[in-house]
Simulated scan of single mutants.
Amino acid sequence: MAEHTENSDSKGESLMEKITEKLHGDSSSSSSDSDTEKKPSSPKKPSSPPKSVKEKFFGLFGGKKPVHQIFGGGKPADVFLWRNKKISAGVLGVATAIWVLFELIEYHLLTLVCHISIFSLAALFLYSNAIAFINKSPPRIPEVHLPEDPFLQVASALRIEINRALALLRDIACGRELKKFLAVVTGLWVLSIVGSWCNFITLFYICFVLLHTLPVIYEKYDHKIDPFVEKVTIEIKKQYAVFDAKVLSKIPRGPLRDKKKA
């Protein structure tokens, strides 16, 4: 009889424990549900690519400097990148007018200079006589002096670039850099083909227009251009590796390379 009462007591205690556990579980689940309902789900941030992927390719110009600094960061860079639209449009318009005069109308430089000089002298002569006849006093025509500093800066910049080109050509002629030799020969060959299509003025005008359009397009759409350039660069490196293994590696080395390796 005592055992029966003990079993019934233990069963009652176990039943009560189950009921209390169920009640606690329901309350905790309901509280967690209410907490989740109170707290709105925060939008997931897009996962950024790892640094190794970002640092794998630095863009068309290396990616270390913006395009404005690559072009010098001064007034020429502002003109090429259309920081001041009026100045850039004016420069491009003057270049277009010069190209139309010399290429389409077939005006010659000496003829143009002479005609401009005749028109300027005639206008100043008539102006000075009209002022002297009306006011009876000699007119004041301002003196024009060209500053020295801009010409010296242009000459210095040209001298530096010419010296760099001569040093590069000297290194290529000595047979030290085969890649540079092939790149320069290919560039000169392409330039000769383009030169056979048009004259120097047209070629200069095309380069001038490209300088006013391509940097702006790249600065605006660099996130789309850089992956494409990366793919092209990888493909070129693969083709060059195949060409190097099949052709360039079989070319006998010159004496300068043997001395350098020794």
Rank of each mutant, 00 (worst) to 15 (best):
A2E: 15
T5D: 07
E6F: 10
E6R: 12
N7M: 11
N7D: 08
S10L: 12
K11P: 00
K11R: 13
G12W: 01
S14G: 04
S14N: 08
L15G: 03
E17A: 14
I19W: 06
I19P: 01
T20G: 05
H24M: 09
S27P: 00
S29R: 10
S31A: 06
S32M: 09
D35H: 12
E37R: 14
E37K: 12
K38H: 07
P40V: 02
P40Q: 03
S41K: 14
S41D: 12
S42D: 04
S42H: 04
P43T: 13
K44Q: 11
S47P: 00
S48E: 12
P49C: 02
P50W: 03
K51G: 06
V53E: 11
E55R: 11
K56D: 13
F57T: 02
G59N: 13
L60F: 14
L60W: 12
L60Y: 15
V67K: 00
F71Y: 15
G72A: 00
G74C: 04
K75F: 04
P76I: 01
P76A: 01
R83Q: 08
N84D: 06
I87T: 11
I87H: 03
G90I: 05
V91C: 14
V91I: 15
V91D: 00
G93C: 02
A95E: 02
A95H: 01
I98N: 00
E103P: 01
E103S: 13
E103K: 04
H108E: 12
L110W: 08
T111M: 02
V113N: 03
H115R: 11
I118Q: 08
I118K: 03
S120D: 09
S120A: 12
A122K: 01
L124Y: 12
L126H: 11
L126C: 10
S128D: 10
N129E: 07
A132G: 06
A132N: 14
A132S: 13
F133G: 02
F133M: 09
I134Q: 01
K136W: 06
P138L: 14
I141D: 04
E143C: 04
E143A: 10
H145S: 10
P147M: 07
P147I: 07
Q153W: 15
Q153V: 09
L158M: 08
E161Y: 07
I162V: 12
A167C: 10
R170W: 15
D171W: 08
A173I: 10
C174K: 15
R176D: 04
R176G: 02
E177S: 14
L178G: 03
A183F: 11
A183R: 06
A183W: 05
V185T: 15
T186H: 14
W189R: 10
S192N: 09
I193C: 07
W197A: 05
C198V: 12
F200W: 13
I201N: 07
L203R: 02
F204G: 14
C207G: 10
L210S: 08
L210V: 06
L211D: 00
H212M: 13
T213L: 13
L214A: 10
I217L: 14
I217W: 08
K220D: 02
D222I: 02
H223C: 01
H223W: 05
K224V: 05
I225M: 09
F228C: 02
V229H: 07
E230S: 01
K231W: 03
A245R: 06
A245Q: 06
K246W: 10
V247T: 15
S249E: 13
K250A: 11
I251D: 01
P252M: 11
P252D: 08
G254T: 13
L256C: 04
K259M: 15
K259T: 09
K260P: 01
